[in-house]
Design a binder for these strands. Sequence first.
DNA 1: TACGGGATCCACT
DNA 2: GTGGATCCCGTAT
Length: 190
Amino acid sequence: MKLSREFYNRSTIKVARELLGKKLVRVLDGRKLSGMIVETEAYIGPRDKASHSYGGRITKRNAVMFGPPGYAYVYQIYGMYFCLNVVTRPRGKPEAILIRALEPIDGVDVMRKFRNGRTLTNGPGRLCQALHIDKTLNDEDLTGDVLYIEDYATPKRIVSTTRVGIDYAEEYKDKRWRFYIYKNRFISRK
DNA sequence: TACGGGATCCACT
DNA sequence: GTGGATCCCGTAT
């Protein structure tokens, strides 16, 4: 079953943990490209120094984070990659969850083509390439039919640890706000 | 209008 | 383990 708006309208940490084992579906030209979510990171703005919404600053890039829950926040990084986030909490509470890794399920042949034979979905930039997710999906409604998340599996054991690539975030860089499925072979790093 | 850096990935050593 | 790719956006001028 497709996750409802209410699923996303809760504690971001809780949603980040519960997204593990769910199935992310991207519909492209009538085909389903999908994977099980195996790794996530929570960004708890405005207080979180690692978050784009730190300090409550609204910009053109991060505006979706300040909107209602259940929407996709997609941004470009390092000039050539995209990252997919899921917005949580009500309008005005700029929190989101970065999807960092998937275990491929449907449309693997298409993903291989988009990834040019390289590893498919074990990293935020890679999975966006595999599922053809780019800026045009920013602000996409996750309760719609283009990009959505649905029930799939229940992880046996979840690991919580520190987030990746946020050394500048001072006291927030040590928060254990990254979650992954223990021993899953598709996580981006331990 | 200019400048600097980034929630990454890849090739190379 | 290291450095380069590559460009948009945030911030300051």
